[in-house]
Amino acid sequence: MPRLGGRGLWLGLAAAAVAAMIARLTGWWSPRADFRLFIPEELARYRGRPGDPGLYLALLGRVYDVSSGRRHYEPGAPYSGFAGRDASRAFVTGDYSETGLVDDVSDLSFSEMLTLQNWLSFYEKNYEFIGRVSGRFYGQDGLPTPELTRTEAMIARGVQANKQDLEEKQRFPPCNAEWSSARGSRLWCSPKSGGVSRDWTGVPRKLFKPGAKEPHCVCVKTTGAPSDQTPDSPPHRNRGDLDHPSLAEYPGCPPLATSCSLPL
């Protein structure tokens, strides 16, 4: 990602983007007077077959007209199984069998929910919203069900988790790495390692994360104030993030070396 004037500005833009995303997400559930309410049996008639009234699909209970993408959804097309039903789960799992083309997303992870939200963004942008289908996500009155409220909360938490991952990647970008059978592993940092452009290089360190079985290599800033320093923090030691408690040095590597070799 291009530099936008420093970490503080980048995080401010990221926070604004997340806030806008959540606002848009919650807006999608708000009541609309012009939507059409389907029952599942009625929606099943919209599969793009000869004589069918149209080509629709549903995602999280929201119905979209995908006629403009007919080559993807019509009978015999790669995603024809999505037509005429709510197959929200398959958007994440890729299971296009009849048992997989269902709307149950109750056991998906936060990251999988975020993938689902990205698909929802895609359909909102590219296809016409037609209405809602009663069932798991909307009642017979067209209003959101508790299941939709729970799903919305999971998506919001997935968005927040993604924001935190992006913030951590800015603070601790991944190392570059290579391995050979003759020399073993080499880990090194550069101003663009991990796909994060910055005005510092850093040194390789192990980063231990709660719940992770193994640490992973990150580049750590070695000068200036810690990234999480606040105005009321004590004076810094000009060591950057080297003193972060979740970091550890690689054995045998000089503490301030930008490259570290780990022999076999």
Rank of each mutant, 00 (worst) to 15 (best):
L114F: 15
L43T: 05
S106K: 01
R71V: 06
L60V: 10
Y79Q: 07
T149I: 08
Y127K: 08
W29Q: 12
S121C: 13
K125L: 14
A15L: 11
V92H: 05
Y127Q: 08
A19T: 11
E41R: 12
D52Y: 01
R36M: 04
V66K: 03
G12V: 01
R45W: 00
T115W: 04
A83G: 10
S80A: 15
R36K: 12
D65P: 11
T93Y: 07
S111I: 06
Y123V: 13
V133D: 11
A33R: 14
Q117V: 07
P146F: 04
A44H: 01
T99E: 15
E112K: 07
A83N: 10
A44M: 01
V63Y: 04
R71Q: 13
S97Y: 03
A17Q: 15
T93F: 06
E124K: 12
R150P: 00
Y73L: 07
V133N: 12
A83Q: 11
A16H: 06
E124S: 13
L120F: 14
R62L: 14
G142L: 08
N126Y: 14
E98M: 07
A23L: 11
L59W: 02
N118W: 08
H72T: 09
H72G: 00
A87C: 11
D95A: 03
A83Y: 10
Y123C: 03
G61T: 09
A17Y: 03
A90E: 08
P78R: 11
G51E: 04
Y123Q: 03
G100K: 03
T93C: 10
P31D: 12
Y96I: 06
D103Y: 00
G51P: 02
E42P: 00
L57V: 01
L60K: 02
W119H: 15
V133C: 12
S109T: 15
E74H: 05
S121G: 14
P144E: 07
M21E: 15
A83W: 08
T93M: 07
L13V: 14
L59S: 02
G69W: 02
A23V: 05
L55C: 02
P40C: 03
A58Q: 04
Q140V: 11
R150N: 06
G142N: 08
A77C: 10
L148E: 02
P146H: 07
L143V: 10
R136L: 15
A33E: 12
S30A: 15
Q140I: 10
G139H: 06
G84E: 10
A14I: 03
E128Y: 00
W28D: 06
Y46T: 01
W119E: 14
G131W: 08
